[in-house]
Amino acid sequence: MSLINTQVKPFNATAFHNGKFVPVSDADLKGKWSIVFFYPADFTFVCPTELGDLADNYATFKSMGVEIYGVSTDTHFTHKAWHDTSETISKIQYPMIGDPTGAITRNFGVMIEEEGLALRGTFVINPEGQIKLCEIHDNGIGRDAKELLRKVQAAQYVASHPGEVCPAKWTPGAETLAPSLDLVGKI
């Protein structure tokens, strides 16, 4: 069953954020656009490249009213240790949620049960708490923050322009489509 347009399931967790341990719940996702970004584990190989890429683009996401939440099945203590020892991870300013029980990871359908780790799952959530984008990658395939940024821009555009949709490779300012009978077979 697809998670698209479903509500984020309730959760409570602890995150490492700005040098502190802070509570995070599904309620924190409401009222703004959010990205919940699952990755397999701290102190690994592809994961720091992805989290660092998001950190490098975090100011742009924030300027669009988007909060990012990194999630792995590690604890918030492990997130702090990684943050304190890795030059790449020390750049992160978004919350890093610990999910040692795997409850959040299972709620989003990205748990690898036999490993106790998450797949690379990316979820864009609107201010009402609905999942608008869901991408799940094999753990050997890293993601690109700039492509995610473009997808969030498209999701925000569609949300604020009822009756319009964004075609492939759409970027802000480009032409959109207004689905109608007149367009059938003409694109």
Rank of each mutant, 00 (worst) to 15 (best):
54 L>V: 05
54 L>W: 01
55 A>N: 00
55 A>H: 01
56 D>A: 03
56 D>I: 02
56 D>E: 03
57 N>C: 01
57 N>Q: 11
58 Y>I: 01
58 Y>F: 06
59 A>Y: 03
61 F>W: 00
61 F>M: 02
61 F>E: 01
62 K>W: 00
63 S>Q: 08
64 M>I: 00
64 M>W: 02
64 M>F: 00
64 M>R: 09
64 M>S: 04
65 G>E: 01
65 G>D: 03
66 V>F: 02
66 V>Y: 04
66 V>H: 01
67 E>A: 09
67 E>L: 03
67 E>F: 00
67 E>C: 02
67 E>I: 00
68 I>Q: 03
68 I>L: 13
68 I>M: 05
68 I>G: 03
69 Y>K: 04
69 Y>P: 01
69 Y>H: 06
69 Y>D: 05
70 G>K: 06
71 V>F: 02
73 T>C: 15
73 T>W: 12
74 D>A: 10
74 D>Y: 03
74 D>H: 08
75 T>N: 05
75 T>Q: 02
75 T>W: 07
75 T>V: 06
76 H>S: 15
76 H>D: 12
77 F>G: 02
77 F>V: 11
78 T>A: 13
78 T>Q: 12
78 T>R: 14
79 H>P: 04
80 K>H: 06
80 K>W: 07
80 K>N: 11
80 K>D: 05
81 A>D: 11
82 W>A: 14
83 H>T: 15
83 H>M: 14
83 H>K: 13
83 H>G: 09
83 H>P: 02
84 D>I: 09
84 D>K: 07
84 D>Q: 06
85 T>W: 05
85 T>M: 14
86 S>R: 06
86 S>N: 08
86 S>H: 03
87 E>N: 14
87 E>M: 14
87 E>I: 13
88 T>S: 06
89 I>Y: 08
90 S>Y: 12
92 I>V: 15
92 I>Q: 04
93 Q>H: 14
93 Q>V: 07
94 Y>I: 13
94 Y>R: 08
94 Y>P: 01
94 Y>V: 14
94 Y>W: 14
95 P>L: 14
95 P>G: 12
96 M>Q: 09
97 I>C: 07
97 I>N: 02
97 I>E: 01
97 I>G: 02
97 I>F: 04
98 G>K: 11
98 G>M: 10
99 D>Q: 13
99 D>P: 10
99 D>Y: 09
99 D>F: 14
100 P>M: 13
101 T>N: 14
101 T>P: 01
102 G>C: 09
103 A>T: 15
104 I>L: 15
104 I>A: 13
105 T>P: 15
106 R>P: 03
106 R>T: 13
106 R>Y: 08
107 N>R: 13
107 N>F: 05
108 F>H: 12
108 F>W: 09
108 F>P: 05
109 G>C: 08
109 G>W: 12
110 V>H: 04
111 M>V: 04
111 M>C: 03
111 M>T: 04
111 M>K: 10
111 M>H: 05
112 I>P: 02
113 E>G: 01
113 E>H: 04
